[in-house]
């Protein structure tokens, strides 16, 4: 157990080092000039000396390798730097934005997990039936649906045509985050969360369904039938336990996809979460913020995978702590 944790921590450190180096290289190669992006519309009013001053203040006059080592050294001390576009420490920006995104992702994660699992179990238990065919059609259709397109569609139907849900943002206009009630927040979350859930559900459905079919064709299901168990009994007493494991693992392992999906959904709904901040940071050349988000999301996805790995050991007695990689 302790050896396992130590090994995971070493893995995480190696992962973060690789991710930082790679994203820093990519950002350095980006055609966006941070100074231009910062100045924006005032580009005509700013002379070359002023530009040089801004560049010098941000350290952009130094070679990339030196910038990277300076940034990395600060990072090790816990200093993620200052976000250029928000003029706040990177960790503060990420903290605020992450709290917003967490609501969205948690709702989408729970709903897609629950619905996907239930639909997958029932479809698999009645393989080939009408319900199974309907669910499969739905899952394949959604597997090929782009998140942003579905978001726009929902927006058109529920916000524009039916006027049931707000068109954008996390709170009603003119209300500060501190004043917003839980209901107001949930009301604004409804469509983005629905978009993410509807798209995220298909992977869980298809995996769960397949595992269910396998479980019902297994030798232990045959023996259970010989003992007088009917299909519902086999599902309840035998298959479910064997199916829940891959579903839970999948749900944790797809945190990365959920994160990616939330970027698109937040753009469509102008939801001020981490995803939107990522797009802003990228478009406006805010290197410290972008790298900070990349690192935090790497930790987030890594944690998801580790939890999945740990759950395997809890649910499946055949997997012990020895030889854990």
């Amino acid at each position: 157990m302790i050896r396992y944790l130590v090994r995971r921590i070493v893995h995480l450190a190696a992962l973060l080092a690789a991710v930082s180096a790679l994203s820093f290289s990519l950002v350095s190669l980006s055609p966006i000039d941070p100074v231009d992006a910062y100045i924006g519309a005032d580009v005509m009013k700013v002379g070359p000396e002023q530009r040089a001053k801004i560049a010098a203040r941000w350290g952009l006059d130094k070679p990339p390798l030196e910038r990277f080592t300076t940034w990395a050294a600060n990072l090790v001390r816990g200093d993620f730097g200052i976000s250029a576009i928000y003029n706040e420490p990177v960790l503060t920006v990420i903290g605020k934005r992450f709290a917003m995104s967490l609501w969205l992702m948690a709702l989408a994660w729970v709903f897609s997990g629950l619905f996907g699992f239930v639909l997958g179990v029932v479809a698999g238990a009645f393989e080939g039936g009408l319900f199974d065919r309907a669910v499969r059609f739905y899952a394949y259709l959604l597997a090929g649906t782009p998140t942003f397109w579905l978001g726009l569609l929902l927006l058109l139907i529920f916000s524009v045509a039916l006027r049931l849900t707000p068109v954008c943002c996390a709170f009603p206009p003119g209300v500060t985050p501190e004043e917003a009630t839980v209901w107001q927040r949930l009301w604004h979350l409804a469509l983005p969360a629905a978009t993410l859930s509807i798209v995220g559900v298909s992977a869980v459905i298809l995996h769960t369904r397949q595992k269910m079919i396998q479980a019902l064709r297994s030798d232990y299901a045959l023996f259970a039938r010989a003992q007088g168990e009917d299909t519902m009994g086999v599902v309840r007493h035998h298959a479910l336990r064997n199916v829940v494991l891959p579903a839970v693992t999948l749900q944790f392992a797809t945190l990365g996809e959920l994160f990616g999906g939330s970027i698109l959904a937040e753009q469509v709904f102008s939801y001020p979460g981490l995803g939107q901040a990522t797009v802003e940071a990228g478009l406006r050349g805010d290197v410290p913020l972008l790298l900070g988000i990349v690192l935090v999301s790497a930790v987030f996805v890594f944690t998801g995978n580790t939890v999945a790995d740990l759950l395997y050991r809890v649910i499946d007695p055949r997997i012990g702590w020895k030889g854990a990689a």
Partner: peptide
Amino acid sequence: VLVPQSVGFLNPLK
């Protein structure tokens, strides 16, 4: 009742 061939016929997770 059936007495199956091996433990492969028992639920591995129970």
